[in-house]
Amino acid sequence: MPRPELDLTARCDCGAVTLRVTGKAVSMFQCSCENCQKVSGSGHSSVVLMPASSTALSGITKSFERPADSGATFTRHFCSGCGTTLLAHSSRAPDLRIVPAGLLAGQNDWFSPNQLIFARSHPDWDLIAEQIPRYYTYRPEKS
């Protein structure tokens, strides 16, 4: 599946923080872990995985760290004023950033997820395209 080359800027809900995203997307996927369900208010989150060097935040943000089921530390960065989630990262992949596709609303028609991870907690009422491969937790590593 082709990975888009991005050159986009997004703002939080109140406009105080800007996220700049440039470069080729590493992956585009959906996640149904229970934390993503809480943050998105839906049955999954839709995200773009980017190299850390391809993202730049400006403005005052806060972050929240929590242990993930994988044993890694998962950190979300959000606007300290309005609470909009701007990006996240995992200690499991320190050179990557997770950008919510919805943050790029109005300029994300290129988004095409290639998998659903943490399908074990995906609710039946949340409709996901049937052709997208589903993984109980993470997609298995390629050998």
Rank of each mutant, 00 (worst) to 15 (best):
M1S: 13
M1V: 13
M1G: 13
M1Q: 12
M1E: 14
P2N: 08
P2M: 06
R3V: 00
P4E: 09
P4I: 10
E5R: 09
L8H: 13
R11N: 10
C12H: 09
C12A: 08
D13C: 06
D13H: 12
V17G: 10
T18S: 15
T18C: 01
T18P: 01
L19A: 01
R20Y: 05
R20F: 03
V21H: 04
V21K: 05
V21T: 06
V26T: 12
V26L: 14
M28Q: 15
Q30A: 05
C31W: 10
S32D: 06
S32N: 07
S32H: 06
C33P: 00
C33K: 02
C36Q: 07
K38T: 11
V39R: 02
V39W: 08
G41I: 07
G41V: 04
G43Y: 11
G43K: 08
S45K: 00
S45H: 10
V47E: 15
L49P: 01
P51R: 04
S53C: 00
T55E: 09
G59F: 09
I60R: 15
K62Q: 14
R66E: 12
S70Q: 10
S70W: 07
S70I: 07
G71S: 11
G71M: 15
A72N: 08
F74A: 06
R76G: 04
F78C: 10
F78K: 11
C79K: 04
L86Q: 03
L87F: 14
L87E: 15
L87P: 03
R92F: 07
P94M: 13
P94L: 11
R97K: 14
I98F: 08
V99Y: 01
P100E: 12
A101P: 09
A101C: 09
G102C: 08
G102S: 10
G102D: 04
L104K: 03
L104G: 08
G106C: 11
G106W: 09
Q107K: 14
Q107S: 10
N108Q: 13
N108A: 12
W110P: 03
W110A: 02
F111G: 02
N114F: 01
I117K: 00
I117S: 00
I117L: 06
R120F: 07
S121M: 00
S121H: 02
H122I: 03
P123A: 04
P123Y: 07
P123L: 02
D126A: 15
L127E: 15
L127M: 08
I128Q: 08
E130A: 15
R134G: 11
R134F: 13
Y135G: 06
Y135A: 03
T137F: 13
P140L: 09
K142H: 12
K142S: 14
